[in-house]
């Protein structure tokens, strides 16, 4: 396993575990954060309840799954899906000029800005790189991008 891929797993898994843990502390607050995005209110409490455990599970798998396991690829895929949805959401917020807290890591996560967009883009790219690596079966002869 390349050092780069190991760092990606550590970083992305850690971020997801931290984000999931922060959100699971106060689902009501997270539901309110979601409604602040003004993308529809009906599904906000459902997302607030379901998303944190998915982040926790995905983060744990990114950290712990054997490198040749299809579960690592599945975790990469789910993480990529989540980061892509988050990226789309923060882009719409910035474009609509809504001034809200991002809620990315619980209650005090700072405002949504182009920095948030850049951070999510970076996360998407990193997850895609890790997925690519995992698809290659974690072959150590593969050089990570």
């Amino acid at each position: 396993m390349t050092l780069f891929a190991a760092l990606l797993r550590l970083g992305l898994g850690g971020i997801l575990l931290y984000a999931g843990w922060a959100k699971v502390q106060d689902p009501t607050d997270f539901a309110i954060q979601i409604t602040n995005y003004r993308l529809g209110d009906v599904w906000a409490p459902w997302a607030a309840v379901a998303l944190p455990p998915i982040e926790l599970l995905t983060g744990a798998l990114l950290l712990l799954a054997p490198r040749r396991s299809p579960w690592l690829q599945a975790a990469c895929l789910v993480a990529l899906g989540m980061f892509a949805v988050f990226l789309a959401a923060v882009i719409t917020v910035v474009l609509r000029g809504i001034d809200i807290s991002c809620g990315c890591f619980g209650g005090d996560s700072g405002p949504v800005s182009w920095i948030t967009v850049a951070r999510n883009t970076l996360l998407c790219t990193a997850t895609a790189a890790l997925l690519w690596y995992a698809r290659r079966g974690g072959d150590s002869s593969v050089t990570a991008p």
Binding site: V49, A50, L51, P52, I54, E55, L57, T58, W71, L77
Partner: peptide, 14 residues
């Protein structure tokens, strides 16, 4: 597996 992961998380959350 990805779908199972999402479903398991969602059920755990509910």
């Amino acid at each position: 597996r990805a779908l199972i992961l999402v479903a398991a998380g969602a059920v755990a959350g509910l």
